[in-house]
Design a protein around this nucleic acid. Sequence first.
DNA 1: CCGAATCCCAGGCGATACTG
DNA 2: CAGTATCGCCTGGGATTCGG
Lengths: 115, 115
Amino acid sequence: MDKQPDLCRVEDALGILVGKWKPIILLYLLQEGTKRFSELKRSMPGITQKMLTKQLRELEDEDIIERVVYPQVPPKVEYSISEYGRSLEPILEAMHEWGTKHTLHKMNKLNKKSM
Amino acid sequence: MDKQPDLCRVEDALGILVGKWKPIILLYLLQEGTKRFSELKRSMPGITQKMLTKQLRELEDEDIIERVVYPQVPPKVEYSISEYGRSLEPILEAMHEWGTKHTLHKMNKLNKKSM
DNA sequence: CCGAATCCCAGGCGATACTG
DNA sequence: CAGTATCGCCTGGGATTCGG
């Protein structure tokens, strides 16, 4: 199964970003700083509690985000990007930039067809 | 960089790289230049013809790779990274670099536990 | 040699309801 | 408020077979 181990490290990074809501969560926390669960949920229309919990857990397991529980009633849990997680920021920015260009690229392609 | 969730284009880039064999295909073609179908298949133990064809088609549809068919018997089809596709190289390199560090990060984490 | 067509399964994702 | 628990759909990926 082992191919060239050194060539396949791309997938380790990819695996962390893949997930329907992970890029959104990461960009949001990078932008807004620390947020509690309900704030995250409110800012992502369409996500269910289950999915938000799951994606947050997975990011936490990889040490990308930090989770702080305040033992009180009602409960309060805050999430934030870890110092380590910030090392992903350049990659996210590069992908966002490339994605923006690619969207234009596809639009040009469609326009050519209809002309 | 616009980080509003609804304007986030990270997923456009992500969608192109996601696919079990796509990073491998891209890195291979970036390194080796033009290759024919059978060479690609031979270099990726475990991939089926169907999957290789599918992943190549998807990359071709996004103009990331180029496909040249030589009308002869037996058939010969060559694949290569397009000029446009090369714009993904910095991202792949960044992810590879990050992935390498992350692998170390996880190893350190495991070592701490067992000490 | 290249790839399309078919069948199949696991897991990601979602809707909904329940709990401390 | 911040989660679990259950159920079910849908799609990516794989084995196999057929065709030009």
